[in-house]
Amino acid sequence: MSFLELTNVTKQFGRLSAIEDINLSVNQGEVLGIVGPNGSGKSTLINVMTSYYRPTSGSIYFKGRKISGLRPDKIAALGIARTFQSNILFEGATVLESVMVSAYLQYKTNNLQSFLRTKAYRDEYEKIVGKVLDLLKMLELFNDTFLPASGLSHGYQRMLGIAIALASGPKVLLLDEPTTGMNHEEAMFVVENIRKINETGVTVILIEHNMKVLLDLATRVAVLNFGIKIAEGKPKEVMNKREVIEAYLGTETI
């Protein structure tokens, strides 16, 4: 069984199937791109994988363990972190606070130790502050460390979203359109960082509209259309498949 595996996953809203019978396996260390036109169920896929929604049927396995139906926090604790399609932030927190709070899973000490401020807790706290600052440096958020997150521009808020997800120290990172609303340079900056993140051993699953980003980054691509997986394989090959072009451009134009 592969690293992360979806078997026959279906999610219905009422009668409507947002995703239907999806089989997908993710290998450790790869960057898997998921593409598809609007409303093809890409975000639903991520939402199902992180238990934001419960799948109607089918199951999801992570390292051979069934994770579908677990609580979102359990899934995060197993090492699957995600970002959101819109900029979801901790209201009223600064950049540093947001990321510090998100580093919750990295602590080994328990709440009582933190309440009593034992030596073990203080040492660990310092270590985590260091890690968080490194993370902020890497994502070029360091200059905004003490600014309120809601005051950042859209591009930086996207980066903060990635920082928040990374702060929990995940093994798998699910990115929901990290480059929406960015210009080319900004998008390329994000691409650079995703590559860096991937190089540290984090498996990345990337939902993307921007073909350039996808071709640059992804080692493998899966294409969704109307909730059904219509193609999977190397980016270049997949993009030339007839079904994929039809899904994107419509049949008549060909």
């Binding site: 609580r71 926090d73 995060a76 604790a77 972190a81 979801i88 927190a93 998100s102 919750y104 702060a167």
Partner: peptide, 23 residues
């Protein structure tokens, strides 16, 4: 302590907090 920050994150955005592994 860490509890304070965690409490705060619950109020600030419970969905995000939950996806960061906070029960």
């Amino acid at each position: 302590s860490r509890l304070g920050g965690t409490f705060f994150s619950l109020a600030a955005n419970q969905i995000l907090a939950e996806h960061q592994g906070i029960y």
